[in-house]
Computed example of a mutant assay.
Amino acid sequence: MDCTDAIVADFSAVGVRGCVHVREVDGEAQVMVGADEPVVLASVVKVLLVTEFARQVAAGQCDPAERVRVRAVDRLGGAGTAGCLDDVDISWRDLAAFAMSLSDNTAADMLLHRIGVDTVRDLAVQLGLTATRIVGGPRQLIESMYADVGAVDAARFAEVFPALGPERLARLAVLDPMRTNASTPRDMTRLLSLIWRDEAGPAAACRRVRELMARQACGHRLAAAFDADVVVAAKSGSVIDVRNEVGVAVCPDGRRYAIAVFTCGGWGMRRPDVDAAIGRVARRAVDFLYSG
């Protein structure tokens, strides 16, 4: 069984569909399974968002230490400021850190309003991410879920969600690459490679994005699959049955590999078997490239 067949088997074993692209950051060798298939980005989009923020900081267009208040009306629920019960005064750079390390949706939404969704779209074009489409931020996507099930707010959505079966959920716009923030695994490894080679913007901006990705709190997908001497910086993304992770693994000898793994179809609130499969296919591809 070759590497790609083994990856397909790994996905099949946990009942998901998966698309993968793993490439050398400093070379051309690659492993791909559905590398050019449209995929739902979910919170992986925050890598592009924070890259644009870091670029604006480096260009002097945004003061990273400027304070902003996160109010009740801003909160979207979840981790970080998104789950706070009281107003929070915080800097833009700390919001960026929360968006990356904790996948804080409120932080990401406020950052997007600060830097502008059009600038994020323009950055995707500038970086040659030809298959990447940005339709909006976390608030727009969450509100689309409410609208799709006829819920007026988060409380009502929480009431109706348990009764929605896979067929109804599959029709939600947030799970359709044609109607939500979407890309391809190949576009995402291109973005990562540009960041790691200091080609996605000023060197200081790229370095900041790398630092923030290295601080991701959840390490149960990519990072868990690699030995302790391999440095992994990553960003996960999840929404309902979509579970993704992108990142870069740096081996002890300095060889660097950009990784993008996207899965869908793993119904259930907790699927540690799918999380493990994401790491397993990433490790399998990196080992193949490293040994080759």
Rank of each mutant, 00 (worst) to 15 (best):
A163K: 09
F11H: 10
A35G: 15
A13V: 01
R93A: 11
V209C: 12
R179W: 10
R121E: 08
A249M: 05
R121W: 06
D227G: 13
D86R: 15
E159C: 00
Y290G: 00
L289D: 08
R114K: 15
V50C: 13
D109E: 15
A205R: 13
G128P: 05
F226D: 00
H21K: 06
Q56P: 00
V57C: 10
D153C: 09
L212Q: 14
L85K: 13
G219S: 08
R139G: 06
V174G: 06
L192Q: 05
G116D: 03
E66A: 15
D5Y: 00
G137W: 04
S144H: 09
L102H: 10
T184L: 01
D275H: 10
I134Q: 04
D118I: 03
V125K: 15
N105I: 03
E37H: 13
D176S: 14
P272W: 09
V174S: 13
G201E: 04
R270Y: 12
L222T: 02
D63M: 02
V120W: 01
V22E: 05
F262A: 09
L49D: 01
E52R: 14
A282T: 02
H113W: 10
D187F: 08
R280S: 15
A163E: 10
L127K: 12
A223P: 00
D87V: 01
R93V: 02
C84N: 11
K46Q: 07
E167W: 04
R156M: 04
L212H: 12
T51S: 15
R210K: 14
A285R: 10
A205Y: 05
V230L: 06
S101T: 05
A217K: 14
L95S: 04
A131Y: 03
A203V: 03
A203Y: 08
R256I: 02
Q61F: 08
R93I: 01
L111C: 07
E66T: 03
D109R: 11
H21C: 12
E143A: 08
A223G: 03
V39P: 07
E199W: 06
A205N: 07
L85C: 12
A6K: 14
V149S: 13
A233P: 02
A258D: 11
D153M: 12
L289W: 12
V88E: 12
C251M: 15
D273K: 06
D287K: 08
D176H: 09
R208H: 07
